[in-house]
């Protein structure tokens, strides 16, 4: 019997279950794109049938990291840039959990960039939402890795001399098996993409455009946008890596020209997730490790019985 009865319950889940009964006062500014992520996530979770008690939402630090305050589930609000290593270990310890990591563009593409690359290449079965507002929100508007070249801020008074990072291309090259971009202004598409991401068995990265009206005043509201999976202008197969690569580049360039392209860019459904790869080489147990500590009948191995002969 599982020690975690919230996992795999077959029942209808109401999106309101994800709303804390005593909702904390919002710390997000009016008009902030972060509300859009919350809303679409609350819709997508019931759609994929995962309840608050079987969901672990791991966040970084930033305005985006406050997501945990408004979504009632198991949560771990970590430190700046480190949501991914915490999240992927939780998934390894208990693969039956629905694990979602989330954080800002600074958090994920800047200070946590190394973890992003490696989590993508390892293809952990989890969803990673990057709130991309092209700015450091919480620390009051400094330049971020996705701020456009020339963007002026208090720390770059003459405008950024740096070419912005290419989040989608980076993700693909690193090894993510599901890469998408959506925008807070398009909650229906966002919900669909989030649901697909959660159901995807592997690392699903969503670059989520979230407008920051407070610090990024000259930034777009990310409208109008084009859905590349729907638009007739794009005849596009997201399982084709070369096509995905080309379109990602185009999308990244066009954002800075004022045109917003969104959609699922890449998916590789037959690649085994990291947990599967580890099980295949005998380095991960079939049953969730976390279950073992609650199993009163488990016979815990002793080093004395297993390993000391070679010291004799």
């Amino acid at each position: 019997m599982s020690a975690f009865s919230a996992i795999g319950e077959e029942r209808e889940i109401d999106r309101e279950e994800y709303t804390p009964a005593i909702e904390p006062q919002p710390t997000w500014c009016p008009g902030c794109g972060d509300f859009g992520v919350l809303k679409s996530l609350k819709q997508a979770l019931p759609e994929v049938g995962r309840s608050p008690d079987e969901t672990l939402l791991v966040t970084g630090i930033g305005c985006s990291g406050k997501l945990n305050s408004y979504l009632d589930s198991y949560g771990f609000h970590t430190i700046h840039g480190r949501s991914l290593p915490v999240a992927r270990a939780a998934k390894l310890a208990n693969p039956d959990l629905e694990v979602i990591a989330a954080g800002g563009d600074g958090d994920g593409y800047g200070i946590g960039g190394n973890h992003f690359m490696h989590t993508a290449r390892e293809n952990h079965d989890m969803t990673y939402i990057v709130f991309n507002n092209e700015i450091f929100g919480l620390t009051k508007g400094q330049t971020s890795p996705t701020s456009p070249k020339g963007h002026k801020s208090k720390t770059q008074p003459h405008g950024s001399a740096k070419t912005p990072i290419r989040p989608l291309s980076l993700s693909l090259t690193s090894g993510a098996s599901f890469v998408a971009r959506t925008a807070a202004v398009n909650p229906n598409q966002a919900r669909d993409i989030l649901a697909q991401a959660m159901e995807h068995d592997g690392f699903a990265h969503i670059d989520f455009l979230t407008q920051c009206p407070t610090w990024n005043k000259d930034a777009r509201q990310y409208v109008p946008y084009t859905d590349i999976n729907e638009s007739d202008d794009y005849d596009f197969d997201p399982t084709d890596r070369a096509e995905a690569q080309r379109l990602m580049r185009e999308t990244e360039d066009k954002l800075y020209e004022g045109e917003v392209l969104t959609g699922v860019y890449y998916r590789e459904d037959d690649r085994p997730s990291y947990g599967q790869e580890k099980r295949d080489i005998g380095e991960m147990p079939d049953e969730a490790l976390a279950e073992r500590y609650f199993d009163d009948d488990y016979e815990w191995e002793r080093s004395y019985d297993m390993f000391i002969d070679k010291h004799k």
Partner: peptide, 21 residues
């Protein structure tokens, strides 16, 4: 893993999820 920040963070994540790490 990729570095020691990640190493400690993984041990924390696994411990949080119920393993001895």
């Amino acid at each position: 893993v990729e570095d020691e920040i990640a190493a400690a963070a993984l041990a924390i994540g696994a411990s949080h999820a119920g393993a001895k790490a």
